[in-house]
Computed example of a mutant assay.
Amino acid sequence: MKPRDIVHEKNSLWIFGYGSLVWKPDFSYKRRKVGYIKGYKRRFWHGDDFHRGDKEKPGRVVTLIEDQEACTWGVAYEVTKSHMEESLQYLNVREVLLGGYTTEVVEFLPKEKSHSSLLALVYIATSDNPIYLGPASDVEIAAQIAVSRGKTGHNVEYLLRLAEFMRLSCPEVEDEHLFSIEAALLKIFPGGEITPSALKSL
């Protein structure tokens, strides 16, 4: 099923978030479910020169890379038909025009086993994108995140909030890529920890 089909044929639309959408959707939704999609791994391989960085120091944000053995945890939001158009318009600016993402339809599996799987719209940035940065070591990615800030805030906040979501909502999941970059970042700062007030001075 193509993205436009899932939008036009349904009375409600599910949108899957795996980056900043897990803590900051900023669109109207009816309910949310924590869960995962199969066949993709989350990686800090996409550049961001607006929300979490700028032209001189692009930040690093996550995208999805196809991997049949992997799964990615996040949140699916149900958007009713009455809010569908405005929500998609908002996301098309946030994710497509400014973020460089395209859309795909994926199968979402809720964490609660009693709930059945569902189709969800997801935004993915590919290597074809001009601000795509690609692979780098955990240390290199952490160093880039440590010095990047954009219109939405510091790149550090993005990383820490995503790690916090995983620990609180999916404590049984070991996201090695995410947590390894977080560990490398914490070594950059004195004391090995960053508070919200410290973020403001970065």
Rank of each mutant, 00 (worst) to 15 (best):
G47A: 02
D48E: 06
D49I: 08
D49L: 03
F50Q: 00
F50T: 03
G53R: 00
G53E: 01
D54Q: 04
D54L: 04
K55E: 12
E56D: 02
E56W: 00
E56F: 01
E56V: 04
K57H: 06
K57F: 06
K57C: 08
P58Y: 00
G59I: 01
R60N: 01
R60Y: 02
R60S: 03
R60H: 04
R60G: 02
V61D: 07
V62F: 07
V62C: 07
V62P: 06
T63K: 00
L64S: 10
L64C: 10
L64M: 11
L64Q: 09
I65E: 10
E66K: 09
E66R: 04
D67L: 06
Q68D: 15
Q68H: 13
C71H: 05
C71M: 12
C71W: 05
T72F: 12
W73S: 08
W73Y: 13
G74Y: 06
G74P: 13
V75P: 07
A76G: 07
A76F: 06
Y77P: 14
Y77Q: 09
Y77D: 10
Y77G: 13
E78H: 01
V79Q: 02
V79P: 03
T80H: 03
T80E: 09
T80K: 03
K81Y: 09
K81I: 08
K81L: 10
S82E: 15
S82A: 14
S82P: 00
H83K: 08
H83C: 08
M84Q: 05
M84T: 07
M84H: 03
E85G: 07
E85H: 07
E85S: 10
E86W: 03
S87C: 12
L88F: 10
Q89P: 04
Q89F: 11
Q89H: 12
Y90R: 11
L91I: 14
L91A: 13
L91T: 14
L91G: 13
N92V: 14
N92A: 09
V93P: 09
V93E: 11
E95V: 15
E95C: 15
V96T: 15
L97S: 08
L98R: 07
L98V: 13
G99Y: 11
G99W: 11
G100N: 12
Y101D: 14
Y101L: 11
T102P: 00
T102C: 04
T102N: 06
T102M: 05
T103D: 09
T103E: 11
T103P: 06
T103A: 11
E104C: 01
V105N: 03
V105E: 04
V106W: 09
V106G: 10
V106E: 07
V106Y: 09
V106I: 14
E107R: 09
E107F: 06
F108V: 10
F108M: 12
F108H: 07
L109W: 09
P110L: 05
K111R: 02
K111G: 05
E112V: 01
K113Y: 03
K113M: 08
K113V: 14
K113A: 13
